[in-house]
Design a protein around this nucleic acid. Structure first.
Lengths: 242, 242
DNA sequence: ATTTAAAATATGTTCATACATTTGGACATC
DNA sequence: GATGTCCAAATGTATGAACATATTTTAAAT
C-alpha cells in the first residue's frame, strides 16, 4: 500500500495519518499481530515528523487497535472501539495482596462448545474450542478455586508458561487484548465433583462466575467458568454512576 | 495548591503531571466547568515544556475529565460516567425487564450497628442507625430476595413511600446522592430464618451481597446487605479496562 | 557449544521553537 | 445600540533534535 498524504490539505496531517493507519491495519496483511513499519522509517516515507506520526498512532493505541512494545515495534492487535477501566485477572488480584497463587492442576483439551459458548464465539457446536481447566489456590491452602477457560482461535498451544497471568500471555505473545468483560455471578451448591476438587462437602455453597471476555473490537476472545469456595474468596465490585 | 513535581524521579514527568492534574480537578475549586490555568503558564510553573504538559492533559481529555476549547482554555467537565453504567437499584433493574416488584414486608427500626458498619459510617457501635428490612419479590413468586438497608444520618423517617426506588427517595427528598458503590459478593448457605423468608430449604446456596454506598464526596451514606435466591437472580457485572 | 558483551534497533520521554486557528474583548464606527 | 475591525490570549498543529530504555541480534570470549 502506498503511503501518501496531502500536505496542502486543510485537514491536519495527524488526522490524515490516523485515517490512513485505520485503513492500513484493516487490511489482511496487517491483521492479527503483525508489526507496523517502524516509526522513523514511516515518518520519512510520509514526509512528516516522528512526533506527528506518534500523535496519529497514539489515538489508535488508546483505542486498543495498536499497542507498542518498547525496543520491538508497534503491533496491530485487532480492530475498533474503546472506553475505560477496571478488573484484573485473579493472579494479579491475589498478587497485589501478597498472596502467592499456585496452579495445582492444569488440563488442556479440545472440546465441543456448549450451545451458549458456541453462540458466544460464533462457531458451530460441532467445532472444537480449546478448554483449559485450572485448579488454583494459595500455597497454604486457605483458598481454592477451579476455572475452565474456553478459547477459540487465539493460537494458544498449551506449551506456554501458565504461571504468568493469562491476559499477559495473550497480550504479549499473541497480541490479543482483553478489554471488555461481562460476568454473571450466581450461588450454586457443590456437586460431588466440584466438592472434591475444592475440598469441601457436597451441597455447600459455591460462587459461580461466568465471564465473557471481549477484545477492543468487541470480538469474543474468551469464555470462562469459575467456581470459588466462598468461605475464602469474596468477589468485589466497584462502580460509579453519573 | 502548590504545583510541584520531582524532576529527578524515575517516574516520567508526564505521568507525574497526570496524577497531579487528577488530584487538582478533584478539588472543590475546580469542580464543574472551572478553567485550568493556561498551558504556557502552567508549564512554566511546573518547570516542564508545554508539550509534556499536553501529553499529560491528553489522557484526561481522552477520558472526558477535561475538554479543551481552542482560544479559550481547558475546562474541567462534570464527572460523567467514568466507570460502569452499571448498577441501578433493584426496582429499576427489574422494572426495566418488565417484571413487577412487590414489597412483601417492610420493617423499620433503630439498631446498633455492627463493628464493620459502625466503622464504615464513622460512628460508635453504641450509636443507633436506621435499619430498613425489605422482603421483596415478583408478583408471580418466581423470585424473592431480602435486603437490610442501614442508614446513619440521612433523615429518613420511615413514613416515606417505599414503593419508589430508594435512591430516588434519598435524592429527591433528602438531597442525598448515591454515587459510588463497593460491593462484596459471596455464596452462603441459607440458615433457618433466611430459608423461611425466601421460601427455600435450609442449607441451599444463597447469593449474599454487601454493598457500601458513597455520595459524590465519598461520604458513606448507606450500607446494605442483600440475600438473593440464586436460582432466580443472576448478578451481572460489566467492566472495561484500559 | 555456551555464555557474555556489545551493538543495532525500536519505542519512550522531553525539550525548544514556530506558526496556525479560534475566541473574546476593546474600540471605533455607523 | 448594533456592527465591524483588530488585537491579545489560548489551544492546535508541526518540526527537529537529543537522549533514555527495552529488546533483539550479533559478535566475541570462554
Amino acid at each position: 500500500m502506498k503511503l501518501v498524504i496531502d500536505h496542502n490539505s486543510s485537514i491536519p496531517l495527524y488526522l490524515q495519518v490516523e485515517e490512513l493507519l485505520r485503513k492500513l491495519i484493516a487490511m489482511p496483511e496487517y491483521q492479527n499481530g503483525k508489526m507496523l513499519p517502524n516509526e522513523v522509517e514511516m515518518a520519512n516515507e510520509l514526509g512528516i515528523s516522528r512526533n506527528t506520526l506518534r500523535q496519529a498512532t497514539n489515538k489508535l493505541v488508546y483505542e486498543g487497535l495498536l499497542f507498542r512494545k518498547k525496543g520491538v515495534g508497534t503491533i496491530v492487535t485487532r480492530p475498533v472501539d474503546s472506553k475505560a477501566k477496571n478488573w484484573m485477572s485473579f493472579t494479579q488480584e491475589m498478587g497485589s495482596k501478597g498472596i502467592q497463587v499456585v496452579n495445582y492442576d492444569i488440563n488442556l483439551t479440545w472440546v465441543n462448545p456448549s450451545k451458549r459458548v458456541a453462540e458466544f464465539f460464533g462457531v458451530s457446536e460441532n467445532s472444537k474450542v480449546l478448554r483449559m481447566e485450572r485448579l488454583r489456590g494459595s500455597k497454604d491452602g486457605t483458598f481454592v478455586y477451579f476455572v475452565s477457560y474456553f478459547h477459540p482461535r487465539t493460537g494458544l498451544t498449551g506449551t506456554e508458561d501458565f504461571s504468568r497471568p493469562l491476559y499477559e500471555i495473550l497480550q504479549n505473545d499473541y497480541a490479543v487484548i482483553a478489554k471488555l468483560s461481562k460476568e454473571e455471578i450466581t450461588a450454586v451448591a457443590a456437586d460431588r465433583i466440584l466438592a472434591k476438587k475444592l475440598n469441601m462437602k457436597t451441597g455447600e455453597p459455591i460462587l459461580r462466575r461466568k465471564r465473557f471476555v471481549f477484545d477492543p473490537g468487541r470480538r469474543p476472545i474468551e469464555f470462562n467458568l469459575g467456581y470459588y469456595r466462598s468461605d475464602s474468596i469474596v468477589y468485589t465490585v466497584e462502580s460509579e454512576r453519573e
